[in-house]
Amino acid sequence: SGEEFIAMYTYESSEQGDLTFQQGDVILVTKKDGDWWTGTVGDKAGVFPSNYVRLKD
């Protein structure tokens, strides 16, 4: 389980282990570690910068 966040911006990365997503995607955040959080979008999982998302209303 985790908290749902909304992507405010598209995040694209070629780094292994990074979670890429489109603006407006719902991200289920499973771990918060400083500026880099872990989460899932659909069947993808990985880390992403926390300043790209906001808490879902």
Rank of each mutant, 00 (worst) to 15 (best):
P49M: 01
F21E: 01
L28Y: 07
I6F: 08
P49D: 01
Q16S: 13
K32Y: 04
Y52Q: 04
K44D: 15
D18T: 12
I27C: 02
F21K: 04
F48D: 03
M8R: 12
G24L: 01
D57G: 14
V53E: 03
K56Q: 09
E3A: 06
A45H: 15
F5A: 11
V29H: 02
Q23F: 04
G17M: 07
D43Y: 06
V47S: 14
E4H: 05
S14T: 12
K31V: 08
V29C: 03
T38F: 13
L55W: 09
K31P: 11
K44L: 06
S1E: 11
Q22N: 15
W37Y: 12
R54A: 11
Q23M: 09
S14W: 09
E12K: 13
F21H: 03
L28D: 04
Q23G: 07
K56H: 08
E15F: 11
T40A: 14
Q23L: 06
V41D: 15
E12A: 09
S50P: 07
K31G: 12
V47H: 12
N51K: 11
A45S: 15
A45L: 11
V53P: 02
D33N: 09
V41N: 14
N51I: 05
P49E: 00
S13W: 01
E3G: 05
Q23E: 14
K32F: 04
D57F: 01
Y52D: 04
V41E: 02
F21V: 01
K31A: 12
D35Q: 05
S1N: 15
E4C: 07
S50Q: 10
G17L: 06
V26I: 14
G39W: 00
G2F: 15
I6Y: 06
S50R: 15
M8P: 05
T30V: 07
G39L: 02
Y52S: 08
I6W: 02
Y52G: 00
L55C: 03
D57H: 07
A7G: 04
Q22H: 12
D57V: 03
E3V: 11
V26N: 06
G34Y: 03
G17H: 11
L28A: 12
T40G: 03
V26H: 11
S14M: 11
D33L: 08
T38P: 03
Q16C: 10
D43Q: 13
V29W: 01
V41I: 14
D35H: 15
G46P: 00
D25E: 14
D43M: 11
L55V: 10
S14I: 00
Q16W: 07
V26F: 05
S14E: 12
E4V: 06
L28S: 13
Q16V: 10
V29D: 03
F5C: 07
T10D: 11
E4F: 07
K32W: 03
K56W: 08
Y11H: 11
S14P: 09
V47F: 05
S1C: 09
E4G: 01
D57N: 15
A45G: 10
D33M: 11
D33Q: 09
D18W: 07
G34K: 09
Y52T: 03
V53S: 03
I6E: 10
G34R: 09
E3C: 07
G2A: 11
D43E: 10
G2T: 15
V26P: 09
Y11F: 12
W36R: 13
G2M: 07
M8T: 08
S50W: 00
D35V: 09
D57R: 04
K31W: 03
F48K: 03
E4W: 08
Q22P: 01
S13Y: 01
I6G: 04
S13E: 05
G17W: 03
F5P: 01
G17T: 08
M8C: 08
G2Q: 12
E15L: 11
E4A: 06
V29S: 02
T20V: 09
S13T: 08
G17S: 11
A7E: 00
D35T: 14
W36K: 15
K44T: 03
T38S: 08
S50V: 04
G34S: 05
G39S: 00
T20N: 14
T40W: 14
V47G: 09
D18I: 12
E3T: 11
T30Q: 13
V26C: 07
F5K: 01
W36D: 06
D43L: 10
Q22W: 05
T10H: 10
R54N: 09
T38Q: 09
L28P: 05
D33F: 06
P49C: 02
G46W: 00
R54H: 09
V53W: 01
G2K: 15
T40K: 14
D33A: 11
N51D: 09
A7H: 01
E3K: 08
K56N: 10
E12L: 07
